[in-house]
Computed example of a mutant assay.
Amino acid sequence: MAPPRWLVIGWLLLVTTACAVPSSSPAASSASTPTPAEAHMRPTPTPGEPKVLVARDPADVPPPIRRTEPTTVEVTLTVREVVAELAPGVAFPFWTFNGTVPGPLIRVMEGDTVVIHLTNPPENHVSHNIDLHAVTGPGGGATVTTVAPGESRTLTFKALKTGAYIYHCAYPPAPLHIAMGMYGIIVVEPKGGLPPADREFYVVQGEWYTSDAFGQGGLQSFDSAKAQAERPEYFTFNGHTQALTELYPMKARTGERIRLFFGVGGPNVGSNFHIIGEIFDRVYAGAPETFVANEETFLVPPGSAAIFEFTAEVPGRYVLVDHALWRMLRGLAGYLEVEGPERPDLFQGTPSVGSGH
């Protein structure tokens, strides 16, 4: 079923207008009457409504694969359009897969037949679809999964190549749907699965283009001019400025082998991913056998994913950052809290002589 004619016209007007107006002009930043397609991005808050979160717990990871024979894996994804908290006191009209940013981690094995069921509930306002970068086929599946509100579609594909891949909505204009929060990671593991790890976490970086400046409270709408100028107001891990600090800090113990599935939804800005005080034993952006060893900071482009592995050897708090470090001031930081015995053979501080401490 084709999307409603008014919706297609609305998207075209949105893209054409934004492209035609320079981002530095007064028209680009001033408020204007929304098109029908934009109207749902400027929702009216409900007085007294409880706080809603789309932030995803990084420890919410499906179990590892241990089988060696391909099978059929079925995944159900439901589009949720929801007004939720982006930062303390700041609300935003997110579009999501299954109500979280990022959407669920999808875990399959090389050779599996993957069946994706995508549902767009009737209470939603916009058509959506899904493009999985692990798919070999037109549009990564987007060409056969477009769903208007009240519709469902099914995509079946063969997982051919190992690695971690981004998935996202690609309904026109695709960057808008991504900028509203519609992305996640699909992992295609080798036969028998990845080597065992003691802890696994799932983190995706994204950026947000809000109508008001960073730190200004209240309900925000999406700002097309800022998005086209690639000037986000907020950066997050897992859909909230405090997702990995106050809400869901990651926990581990010394000596544990840690695997981190990390991606960048974007839509515009990549990540110079770094954990302060750690060196990654292995990083692989493609097949596991093509890993890079002993890496400090690794560039993950927008629309891409990688797997990071390391051992936590010294207890303490480790901070996840994008090493374009000013982004920390716009919400981009996470905590890995490591407990265990001290390791003075590896790390210790010694007071200076005469310091009085």
Results as ranks from 00 to 15, higher is better:
residue 102 P to I: 08
residue 126 V to N: 13
residue 142 A to N: 05
residue 132 L to D: 09
residue 136 T to E: 15
residue 111 G to Q: 10
residue 141 G to N: 09
residue 115 V to R: 15
residue 128 H to S: 10
residue 113 T to F: 03
residue 139 G to M: 11
residue 118 L to D: 01
residue 140 G to L: 14
residue 123 E to G: 01
residue 132 L to I: 08
residue 132 L to R: 00
residue 112 D to L: 10
residue 125 H to V: 00
residue 140 G to R: 04
residue 140 G to A: 06
residue 136 T to L: 05
residue 102 P to N: 07
residue 130 I to P: 11
residue 105 L to H: 00
residue 127 S to W: 05
residue 129 N to I: 15
residue 139 G to Q: 11
residue 129 N to M: 09
residue 132 L to A: 10
residue 109 M to A: 08
residue 102 P to R: 09
residue 103 G to P: 05
residue 120 N to H: 04
residue 102 P to E: 01
residue 146 T to K: 01
residue 123 E to L: 00
residue 115 V to M: 03
residue 115 V to L: 02
residue 146 T to N: 12
residue 127 S to Q: 12
residue 133 H to T: 11
residue 103 G to A: 04
residue 139 G to E: 08
residue 98 N to K: 12
residue 144 V to C: 07
residue 98 N to P: 11
residue 146 T to V: 08
residue 123 E to R: 03
residue 105 L to F: 04
residue 104 P to S: 08
residue 133 H to V: 04
residue 120 N to V: 07
residue 129 N to C: 15
residue 117 H to N: 09
residue 145 T to V: 14
residue 98 N to H: 04
residue 104 P to M: 01
residue 127 S to F: 02
residue 129 N to V: 07
residue 133 H to P: 00
residue 122 P to Y: 09
residue 105 L to D: 06
residue 122 P to N: 07
residue 134 A to I: 05
residue 100 T to Q: 12
residue 127 S to D: 03
residue 122 P to V: 08
residue 120 N to A: 02
residue 100 T to G: 00
residue 140 G to Q: 05
residue 103 G to H: 02
residue 100 T to H: 06
residue 143 T to L: 15
residue 114 V to H: 13
residue 130 I to W: 03
residue 105 L to Q: 03
residue 135 V to F: 05
residue 110 E to V: 06
residue 117 H to Y: 13
residue 145 T to L: 14
residue 109 M to W: 03
residue 108 V to C: 10
residue 98 N to C: 12
residue 112 D to S: 07
residue 137 G to W: 06
residue 133 H to F: 04
residue 141 G to K: 11
residue 105 L to A: 01
residue 131 D to F: 13
residue 118 L to I: 06
residue 131 D to W: 13
residue 104 P to G: 01
residue 111 G to M: 00
residue 127 S to M: 00
residue 132 L to K: 07
residue 143 T to Q: 13
residue 128 H to V: 12
residue 102 P to W: 06
residue 127 S to P: 13
residue 140 G to N: 02
